[in-house]
Design a binder for these strands. Structure first.
Length: 456
DNA sequence: ATAGGGTTAG
């Protein structure tokens, strides 16, 4: 692919056709060849709205949302007015970053320029607000879309699902059917996901069984993965295994991954080994498989096998992905890793954590040291837990945002059990809502409890 | 010429 693109680049160099430049930027971006895309963009003499949009989209789609937003400011500086395309791309960048404040600003531009007629802009708004942790704003944006299409409905249902509002998601789904809008396969993934996060097993099974006759399409891998995860969490591992065995096509990594997760919950070594074996063939580059299987072994006391997995990880050069958390304060995204002291306000952040620590223990919180797997003393474990990336981000949020303002944090992994407990206490002690987006759902901590109901 | 929704993994 790279060679084909480079040969097109030669044509471009000879012709200097700005239209070709945009397509090249787009193509390099879609192939994750960002440096090449940037070079074309900077070399191109005629840079207009579409050129900027191509580059902004390239950044956004390759996970460089901050670069996308920066480039947008440069575009505005040059006096170029936005269109619905660039707004849609920017909203997507904000969604990925969980950048609520900046997303709101793009929303203002959408309204100011009258782009709500454009479904892409409206749909992107729904998605952005849901991803930034504000399901209320997402619902308001959804209501303001003049003609809601299948993507609008799917985005709304998916958003509600990820926030744990399963029943509300199903209500919206039924409303959609009443309006005569036909769902597609993606809508049904969101519907099953909604059932999953709300523990609605029977409802999920009904949709899963009658998908073909009700809506006229076949099940996909993703539908199976969702059902297996759901059955696993509901304690029905045998049914989950049965589903994998009776699938009409070869199970892919998503299905085996769901089964491995279910096997861990139920400490089932046999099924865990089978799923891991398949995953190591299908997705050898991912680190989660080794870790999960090792945890299954550890949970049943098979320490020799735990050691074997550790060795295997070392031999295959597989590393655990480090935990990272982000928080947006006044148009800027701050990044934290565990034990981080690189932040300019580092001392204040750690002082805040110490202060919180004291108030938490008075409120009855006990650090869950069992979730720290380091081979150290209890004191040391407590300290390590206290310096998890999500706690640093929340502490910074408390310092850097006005009293009473909600704190929105994004984490690249699942929230740890200790942080989850601590945040429930903190939300009550400091009277703040904490909205945490982790790798697969949203947690709203308020008044001492979490919207996930401790089921996640 | 440029844009939107979903799933699994401590």
């Amino acid at each position: 692919m790279r060679q084909e693109l480079d040969s097109i680049k030669q044509h471009y160099r000879q012709s200097s056709n700005p239209l070709l430049a945009c397509s090249l930027i787009d193509a390099y971006g879609k192939c994750a060849l960002l440096e090449d895309a940037t070079r074309i963009f900077r070399e191109c003499l005629i840079v207009d709205l579409v050129g900027f949009t191509s580059m902004i989209t390239a950044y956004s789609q390759s996970g460089q949302g901050e670069e996308a937003l920066k480039l947008y400011l440069e575009m505005l500086d040059r006096g170029i007015e936005p269109d619905p395309y660039v707004c849609s791309s920017l909203l997507n960048a904000c969604a990925n970053l969980s950048a609520y404040e900046q997303g709101k600003q793009v929303h203002v531009h959408v309204l100011k320029h009258g782009f709500m007629y454009d479904n892409f802009a409206g749909n992107s708004l729904v998605n952005m607000y849901a991803k930034c942790g504000s399901i209320d704003d997402a619902e308001r944006a959804f209501s303001s879309i003049p003609e809601r299409g299948i993507v609008s409905w799917s985005a709304m249902i998916g958003g509600l699902a990820q926030h744990g509002h399963g029943k509300e998601a199903l209500r919206v789904f039924n409303q959609m059917l009443k309006y005569g809008v036909s769902p597609n396969q993606i809508t049904l993934v969101s519907v099953l996901c909604a059932c999953n996060h709300a523990g609605l097993v029977t409802e999920a099974q009904n949709y899963f069984r009658s998908m073909k006759e009700l809506f006229g399409f076949e099940r996909m891998q993703e539908h199976y993965a969702c059902m297996i995860d759901l059955l696993g969490r509901a304690g029905r591992l045998d049914e989950a295994m049965e589903l994998v065995n009776t699938m009409p096509f070869q199970a892919d990594g998503s299905v085996w991954g769901a089964l491995l997760g279910a096997a861990r919950i139920h400490k089932n070594v046999e099924i865990g080994q089978r799923a891991a074996e398949m995953l190591l063939i299908l997705e050898p580059e991912k680190s989660g498989t080794h870790v999960l299987l090792a945890n299954i072994y550890a949970s049943v006391g098979m320490w020799n096998n735990v050691a074997k997995m550790r060795r295997l990880m070392k031999d295959c050069n597989v590393k655990k992905e480090p935990g990272v958390s982000w928080i947006e304060v006044k148009d800027k995204i701050y990044t934290f890793i565990a034990g981080d002291r690189s932040h300019v306000q580092s001392e204040e952040i750690y002082a805040k954590l110490d202060e919180l620590s004291e108030r938490l223990s008075k409120a009855g919180y006990i650090p869950k040291v069992e979730f720290d797997l380091h081979n150290v003393e209890r004191d040391e474990k407590e300290k390590l837990l206290y310096h998890h990336s999500e706690k640093l981000a929340v502490a910074f949020g408390l310092i850097a945002t006005p009293a009473g303002a909600p704190i929105r944090v994004k984490k690249n992994l699942r929230v740890c059990m200790d942080c989850h407990t601590a945040f429930k206490f903190i939300s009550k002690i400091v009277s703040r809502e904490i909205i945490l987006r982790d790798i697969n759902r949203y947690h709203h901590f308020k008044d001492g409890s979490c919207s996930c109901g401790d089921y996640w």
